[in-house]
Nucleic acid binder design. Structure first.
Lengths: 143, 143
DNA sequence: ATTGAAATTGATAAATCGTCTCAAAAAGAA
DNA sequence: TTCTTTTTGAGACGATTTATCAATTTCAAT
């Protein structure tokens, strides 16, 4: 019994609803993905090469995008690459980023999210996702 | 006397500090850039083709990146392209983005920024800049 | 104003990242 | 098993951005 049974079920539900099939590759990629906070397709490609040397990069991209559609992942453009965030546990994924050493701290703040909803409503928008990144210096780099 | 004298001075100061030179192209691009809220390199390329048909795309990229280093612009990856935001007027630049039609609404919210400071302080960070993007559907696309 | 070292430019080649194509393979219902 | 549909893997492709490099421009020192 996997630790991530809930997410596995969620994916299968999505697959069923959309006439998609449950493949070995999708299960393999999901299993690896759920162990991460966030990962790039390229990183996952190298990571999974050990388990399945023939797993194609295109399949990883396709599958991670599938996870986004299924609501398990969320794509985020960071630098030149796309990070796929694991949002199956937390609803959102905000970041504090040290511009000096690159350290990333993740946080969540309900008050900020409530205010975001207000701003959106005031402008006639319905928010689906958001992205908040705070750039600065961590305590160590400030000195 | 240009409306953007402050920014022109800021750029020249940056150039001086880094042994960079003030060229006709840089002045031309700065002038065009300061009239925008945000623009892509490609869009600026086409826009400036009228004034200088020989201005190269690479120069536009180089110069917009220079503006980022000088603190006049801020790069933001949206979809497959990079938007260069004009941050010389406002300290911050937050966006409401319609994922359907691409419409972008800019906003500012002091309460959110105050909360951001709190989160940062709690984690030992000192914020220099931030990025907040809310993705969803605008009123028109919701229907 | 002229000179000369250093930076910049324009044109294009190259790199990067992600998607598309398509024949072969796999899934899964009948 | 059989048949239809979906998926896969490999590489081609497309879009965006950066690197290369000879020619040009800037600008400080004559």
């Amino acid at each position: 019994m996997s630790k991530h049974q809930k997410e596995i079920t969620a994916l299968k539900e999505h697959l069923g609803k959309h006439q998609l099939k449950c493949t070995r590759q999708r299960e393999l990629i999901l299993d690896a993905f759920l162990k991460q906070e966030h990962i790039t397709a390229e990183a996952m490609y190298h990571q999974l090469a050990k388990k399945d040397p023939h797993l194609g990069l295109a399949t990883i991209y396709r599958t991670l995008n599938l996870f986004c559609e299924a609501g398990l992942a969320q794509a985020r453009h960071f630098g030149t690459q796309t990070q796929y965030d694991n949002v199956s546990h937390k609803g959102h994924h905000d970041h504090l980023i040290c511009t000096d050493c690159g350290k990333i701290v993740e946080f969540e703040n309900c008050d900020i999210e409530r205010l975001q909803e207000e701003v959106a409503a005031r402008n006639g928008f319905t928010i689906k996702t958001h992205r908040l990144e705070l750039y600065g210096l961590c305590s160590r780099c400030r000195h």
